[in-house]
Amino acid sequence: MTASPLESPPLLETENLVRVFGTGENRVAALQGLTFEIHQGESVAIIGKSGSGKSTLMHLLALLDQPTSGVVAMRGQVVSDLKPKQIAKVRNTTFGFVFQQFFLNAHETVLENATLPLKIAKVPKAERHRQGTEILEMLEMGDKLKAKAINLSGGQQQRVSIARALINSPEILFADEPTGNLDSETSAVVEDILFGLNEQGQTLIVVTHDEDLAAKCARQIRIQDGQIIEDSVVNA
């Protein structure tokens, strides 16, 4: 750990986080009061089976959803009750997202896909291209800048997706089943990239049901039926 909880507020924390879907007979409590902290530079796996509530938790942490009760705070500031516009800005500037299915725009170029968050943030085109080129070169995609996303292999697509997640130098990188759609060889490469970034200080939150991937994270938060059943730090 790079920072002590006693000296500065944690990067991300939750308090008694509850998320209920539906009402009456259809009422489902997806999360039943979770409280934990994530500190700068950690690599955390949120692990659980399908329906355990791990995706709901990630949506709440990533401010894509609002808790029924409880709060999400960043550096001691409550962010879960901000206005939609401010939340959008937090997502745009402080989070990076890597999705299982990449979600690239098939008809746009690699460079255009990777620089989408900058485009949303109103960064001028020349600057977007400069930063995009730099990150894509770092991820060994420098020779595919002008290629259409539709023409890439799965591994290449996920690299573009990682480039897009990193382009705004996020404080937290969320990866939702990042290797779920890749063969084992490509998975290894993507894992190397993600954990390599974590070694350089990038806070990483991986949501997965894959025990092998979870084991590569320094900390595992295991979710079952909307509750944390295990929060362990494995010495990597």
Binding site: K85, A88, R91, N92, F97, L116
Partner: peptide, 16 residues
């Protein structure tokens, strides 16, 4: 739908 979801997840406001 997916493109719109991505835009919003990456911080585009509903207004935009």
């Amino acid at each position: 739908t997916r493109q719109i979801g991505l835009y919003k997840a990456l911080g585009m406001t509903s207004g935009k």
